[in-house]
Nucleic acid binder design. Sequence first.
DNA 1: TAGTGGTCTAGACCACCCC
DNA 2: GGGTGGTCTAGACCACTAT
Lengths: 238, 238
Amino acid sequence: MQRSSGTPLYKKVFEELKSKIDSGLYKMGDLLPSENELCKLYFTTRPTVRQALNDLSNLGYIVRQHGKGSIVSEPKNGLGILSLKGSTAGVGKHNLKTAIITKPIKQAWPESFEFELTPEEKEAGSIYLSRLRYVDGLPTLFEETYISNIDLPRFTLHNLEKNSLFETLKNYHDVEVKEGEQKIWAIEASKDLAEMFNIKAKKPVLHMKRRLKTNKKNLFIYSFLYCNTQDFFIQDYF
Amino acid sequence: MQRSSGTPLYKKVFEELKSKIDSGLYKMGDLLPSENELCKLYFTTRPTVRQALNDLSNLGYIVRQHGKGSIVSEPKNGLGILSLKGSTAGVGKHNLKTAIITKPIKQAWPESFEFELTPEEKEAGSIYLSRLRYVDGLPTLFEETYISNIDLPRFTLHNLEKNSLFETLKNYHDVEVKEGEQKIWAIEASKDLAEMFNIKAKKPVLHMKRRLKTNKKNLFIYSFLYCNTQDFFIQDYF
DNA sequence: TAGTGGTCTAGACCACCCC
DNA sequence: GGGTGGTCTAGACCACTAT
């Protein structure tokens, strides 16, 4: 089976199992097929299916129990916006809607930037956009994104209301998001932020600064997130 | 080599490499020995060393670059208290000191508890302790811990100032911490908390509620953490 | 071209859980 | 006892990086 298409087999297994859980085909408490059964289903071997199952376990979709099997977990109550592994943000059983506050525009990098930029990035400048995300109708997540403006022709023309940022990057520009790093603080909401979130100024807000690598050298994605944790919380497995 | 002692070989490789990085034997920018060289060093095969290298990569100790090698990363500025993988909290290049605020005492579970308890746990009651942790001398982390009081004879007698909680559990009670789940909020500091942290009340504080599994059935560790992010931040890799 | 990490095969033994 | 996941062996081919 050795990777005839471009995507690794373990990712395919991961995606299929994930979508079967998301769609409710496997419900909470169900046992997934055993590793050996999955091997037969996908014509592969245990290390490969184990890589997929490990990823599912890290995202909290399953719990693996020695001697028993892989048990499907309860849908999350929280927002799985930590530990995103290249895929789009997970919001568990909640609905996510996105409003573009600032359409993508080319601009120079901010004067002082949290992360160190390579000379090539500085030279190329950035593409900036900002989005407000509603969870179950409540404004919960404000995200400012800077992308190194490298090899992204006509990027500012995309309609990001309909398509996810990561999917747009992958489908139109062959950019795949890989690993990343993030820093987290609790801060006071600024006046503008409080207004967006419909809370009082100076209320606590969760703040994240994040740097994502891609498959392109020098092309990074920087995200500055603000999360209102009055109504929701962030959830994470490890 | 097949596990003569109790600990898996990949963990041994992980621990040795980690300590060589921590001690400065491998410095930032250095290349670790290649996977094949590590295989020879530890008389094992690639999947095993890869498991160790993956764990190091997830903790931000190294960056793995295709075609080049495993590059030692810069020591973290932030606190690695997310994504602890069974080991004790990582504080990067900072110093950590711990003061016991409440010595371990047996008590019933609180009336309303964030996590669901098994009947066996409810029956057994809990052991409670609380600690204040100083990072570089600054009070930064307040941690309340509840442990299911199952098979932990004379636990309340331990001196936890000197020994880490996880090591005590492992060495004296054969309890190993495994995977976990955590929830995160930004909240206002209570009066007591603000006093401990030497900040004003109602200032934003990062709050985590965490449930850790162990190798013993029904024995869980619950941690309620409060982190002052005025001087430090939390850092995470994925 | 040589060496690296990324993916994968085809087996194996063990510890743990359930019946 | 039979099946499960946890760990491990001993190879293989591929894609990427450096030279």
